[in-house]
């Protein structure tokens, strides 16, 4: 069972992400956090195999969440799914060693990309 934690302040977006990604993977379970702080708590508690993190969030921004997670587990597997498409933002995030930076809105094709990354990692 692959455990995936989705951190996104939009319940709608959580639902889309889990349904699109879940469709392309077998044997996965999803957990959800509504903001960065909750994301950090759930990360400590659940220790997911993968994190799908949004950047624009209240309380703890995605970028800060990634840093905090890295301090706990330097090898944490993180995929960013964000509406922030600025090249400058992307450059900074990619330097933080995330597996991939996916632009919202999520569609089938992008969900497959995420699923492929996760499947490869599981093998």
């Amino acid at each position: 069972m692959t455990k995936i934690l989705i951190v996104d302040d939009s319940k709608f977006s959580q639902k889309i992400t889990s349904s699109l990604v879940g469709k392309n993977l077998d044997d996965v379970s999803f957990d959800y956090a509504d903001d960065g702080e909750e994301g950090l708590e759930k990360f400590r508690e659940i220790r997911p195999d993968y994190l799908l993190i949004d950047l624009l969030m209240p309380k703890l921004r995605g970028q800060d969440l990634i840093e905090s997670v890295r301090q706990i587990d330097f090898d944490a597997k993180i995929i960013v799914v964000s509406a922030d498409v600025q090249k400058r933002v992307r450059d900074v995030i990619e330097k933080m060693g995330v597996l991939s930076f996916i632009n919202k809105p999520l569609n089938d094709e992008k969900a497959k990309t995420i699923a492929d990354i996760i499947r490869k990692g599981a093998q």
Partner: peptide
């Protein structure tokens, strides 16, 4: 499934994506 998804939340996500793209441009 996740909690109840309300109308505001759906629109918020759509507009977030829009504003994010605008900021990118």
């Amino acid at each position: 499934m996740t909690g109840k998804v309300n109308r505001e939340d759906i629109l918020k996500e759509l507009f977030n994506i829009g504003v994010g793209q605008a900021a990118g441009t």
